[in-house]
Nucleic acid binder design. Structure first.
Lengths: 340, 340
DNA sequence: ATGAAAGCGCTAACAT
DNA sequence: ATGTTAGCGCTTTCAT
């Protein structure tokens, strides 16, 4: 390992240095630093004086070197910290971590399964006490060994592959189903459904919910009204435009995520269409959108919190069978209208 | 320190275990693990076999225990990871960190100076190689010692107090000045100015820019048109409403940050006012806002990247005099209008 | 090319 | 109540 901090004016003092200056033993310094009560007040004073004089600061790396000791660190692997979806989760996880006096190392995989793997294994090398994963990869069997070695793992939002472990999900299927049902109740017979790639677990679940609701209503299945693999808002706008321009246009749209919602919304507003809009996942400023829309909302912070809490239970020794928790969704009316 | 992982079925194997199983010395294992070339191929093989069999994973804590060695970790202190402003910075910092094979520990102070201080000192205890700070606190002199001890620090967005060190800022003053100047060029004589608390450095700078531009234009200073200490969108809407309802309403608004912009925007839209709107700081979906607005934009990722790069220069041994960098702003026309 | 021994900074076990 | 010793898992002299 290269010494990246060569040539410092000062080297950080150690407990030995403090002990020497204070004229006490190393162990006494250790006791004082760790607030062990049974220490003579005079010694405490002289140690603290020496600590201040030298600018001593305990080396926590050395402290947690002992085998099996906690490093007071957990790791979180996400796809992209700049995305509000992930940063909201990260923030909630950090909050729980703080409650447990634990630091959080957040690592972005940039959607690369290899990077995700490398990151998680590196976190194991640093002896993180546990790991949270919003998976990007498609095989997580390599984590089995790490879990056996004592590093618990909890998955968020998406299930692991090739591995059984704790996880927290959103009720994608139920939410989508409820959304479609609402649209049907409102009298819509032709609903345009626009989804991102079905390679994404949540999209498969949401589509399944859509189909279940349509089937339950006995509505004829119209291929022209379902489009998957739409990734960008612009593409979503285009798809919506195409459907609206067809001979039998939809009277409502169901959007698989909020990027799609935004694209469709823009298209509807531009052409002053009064088609209804429902989107999965709320987004910032949705209440400011220039026309009414309904969103299937869920509590992302709760997802992060629940997952982190499950993880800390494991860290604290819980060895029970892996658990899966599913968080509910809510239908929310959003968007503003101008005052008359 | 409590042993939080007591009772594991397996304990993580060490290099000694690997050496024993492979029938070689500890040092040979170390060489193989660290890809030292001068090792007999047979030994390499037997070591790797043992590594695989035991599920060995090097303990990076132990590795970086040696004094002065890098921990390949930097720390970032921000106010709130859930806020896109900070998560964007964090993401950019993480990106640079990754380029340097370094992990990032991001800690939210929740706007508490004490927490900020605790966090930063804890990061020093874990021997982070360096620290980035978007400061919440008002005294950072305690960092001087840490810097002397070899932990470089770089400030982002706001300057340190009681301490001289590297920093990267946005050109708040120049940006605000340019914004006001543009409004004046557009013929506006009465500009409502709404700011958050002047306890915030960036607000003071922006207000100074506003005042400079107004003074340069020789425009009379009207107290009724300047309001500071506005923190919430709702409050901003209220302030805008008050100004608009006055006997001499403004024809344009200048908003100190995007929370204020959103509040004012909503008010303008509701009452169908055609007052011009200019806001400091772009925001997601600004181009979807239901009326035109101009934003003073800046590159937050660049702020994070620049700061991180300065930090790594220090970590790599740069001991030159502290530097301050100021990033430019741009005026951007935003908002959409409905198709005819 | 390989290995034995020392030590990184700290804490736990065991004296005194 | 205080100090001594050993050892965490690894890397680094220094021998061989």
């Amino acid at each position: 390992m290269t010494n990246r901090s060569a040539g410092h004016p000062t080297r950080r003092p150690t407990m030995t240095d403090v002990a020497e200056l204070a004229g006490v033993s190393l162990k006494t310094v250790s006791r004082v630093i760790n607030n062990v009560p049974s220490v003579n007040q005079e010694m405490v004073d002289s140690v603290l004086t020496a600590v201040k004089q030298l600018g001593f600061r305990r080396n926590d790396l050395a402290r947690s070197l002992r085998a099996g000791d906690s490093t007071a660190t957990i790791g979180l692997a996400i796809e992209d910290l700049a995305n509000p979806f992930y940063s909201t989760i990260a923030s909630a996880v950090a909050e729980v971590a703080r409650e447990h006096d634990t630091h959080l190392i957040t690592a972005s995989s940039e959607e690369s399964p290899e990077r995700e793997r490398d990151l998680l294994l590196e976190l194991c090398q640093r002896r993180a006490d546990g790991l949270l994963v919003v998976p990007a990869g498609t095989d997580h069997s390599y984590l089995r060994l790490e879990i056996e070695m004592g590093t618990p793992v909890v998955f968020l939002d998406r299930p692991p592959t090739g591995l059984l472990c704790d996880a927290v999900f959103i009720d994608n299927r139920g939410g989508a189903s409820a959304g479609i049902t609402r649209l049907l109740e409102d009298g819509h017979q032709r609903i345009g459904v626009i989804m991102d790639s079905l390679a994404i677990y949540t999209m498969r679940e949401r589509l399944a919910g859509v189909q279940a609701a349509l089937a339950a209503a006995g509505l004829p299945y119209d291929d022209a009204l379902i489009r998957v693999g739409v990734h960008e808002p612009e593409a979503a706008a285009g798809v919506a435009a195409g459907m609206l321009d067809s001979s039998r246009p939809p009277t409502a749209f169901f959007c698989g995520n909020n990027r799609i919602s935004v694209g469709v919304l823009e298209e509807l507003w531009h052409r002053d269409s009064d088609a209804a809009l429902m989107g999965f996942d709320d987004f910032e400023l949705s209440r400011l959108m220039p026309r009414p829309l309904t969103v299937i909302a869920f509590d992302l912070r709760e997802l992060g919190r629940k997952g982190a809490e499950m993880l800390f239970k494991r860290i604290d020794g819980d060895r029970s069978w892996p658990t899966t928790e599913v968080l509910p969704t809510t239908l929310l009316e959003r968007g503003v209208s101008r005052r008359a």
